[in-house]
């Protein structure tokens, strides 16, 4: 009898509970977003920047090309920007290419001019290298060109064996720096000169160039990447050395890359 009762209870439950539910219909829309990294470096500069030293004052005081290159950055990701000196390697990976030799055969006339003799000065300070300030002697190229009588490595162009490998923690960056800590510390945040303040922003850099041969022409401002060792001709080749007259070429490569 108990079994019958339990059966009846179960049947009643099944009979009573399946009351009609609320009518519902659902449809889905799937949204996929593909965020591709965009890094744009716009550069306005003469095709060829010439430094012609045909006057004694130019050897003494050097020649400066103001705002010869304008760099404008637009990036959707955190970024770094640096300059690196390169050549075809005719005289070696870290030297200017000697195109014409003006016929001097003196053994003290040195044809191997270091790429780092070229000095840069950026108008806008590097505001993305607070962490690097503690490790690098010069974190950027923002310091003023030094006087001819006071050699300084502060504006000497970064060179790395003829490659475009980024500078290390002790090197110079135009914006950002080595490491991925955070924007401001060693990176610049995404943005564009179009919307972030224009020429006064961290996305716009005017670059001055200077070459100061000195007399004798030993290029006293040439220095290695960390700014700790000078590479002027006397330091490298010994006393009495000087630059062999001639025509030399090299190029500066500007690299914009995602923060690294």
């Amino acid at each position: 009898m108990k079994r019958i009762l339990l059966t009846l209870v179960a049947a009643a439950t099944l009979f009573a509970l399946p009351a009609s539910a609320q009518l519902i219909d659902e449809k889905d829309v799937t949204v996929t977003m593909d965020l591709q990294p965009v890094l744009q470096l716009e550069m306005s500069t003469p095709n060829q920047i010439e430094f012609v030293f045909d006057n004694i004052n130019e050897y003494y005081a050097g020649i400066t090309q103001y705002a010869a290159t304008i760099l404008k950055v637009s990036s959707t990701v955190s970024w770094d920007l640096y300059a690196v000196g390169r050549s075809n390697g005719t005289n070696g990976p870290e030297f200017w290419d000697q195109v014409i030799d003006y016929g001097n055969s003196n053994i003290n006339a040195i044809p191997d001019l270091p790429l780092s003799l070229l000095e840069l000065r950026q108008a806008q300070a590097n505001n993305g290298a607070t962490a690097a300030a503690a490790t690098a002697t010069f974190a950027d190229y923002n310091q003023a060109f030094s006087q001819a009588a006071v050699p300084s490595a502060g504006n000497s162009l970064y060179v790395n064996g003829g490659t475009n490998t980024p500078p290390g923690v002790d090197g110079k960056y135009i914006a950002g720096h080595s490491g991925t800590t955070a924007p401001g510390a060693d990176a610049m945040p995404g943005g564009s000169y179009l919307i972030n303040g224009g020429t006064a922003s961290d996305f716009y850099y005017a670059v001055d160039y200077r070459i100061l041969p000195g007399l004798p022409a030993v290029f006293p401002m040439a220095a290695d990447a960390d700014g700790a060792t000078f590479e002027d001709l006397v330091t490298v080749n010994g006393a009495g050395s000087y630059a062999e007259p001639g025509v030399y070429t090299m190029y500066v490569q500007y690299v914009l890359l995602e923060d690294q």
């Binding site: 609320q22 009518l23 519902i24 219909d25 659902e26 449809k27 829309v29 799937t30 949204v31």
Partner: peptide, 11 residues
């Protein structure tokens, strides 16, 4: 590449 789904519910 990222994704979400919008679920429309008629009730």
């Amino acid at each position: 590449i990222y994704m979400i789904t919008l679920r429309f519910n008629l009730e």
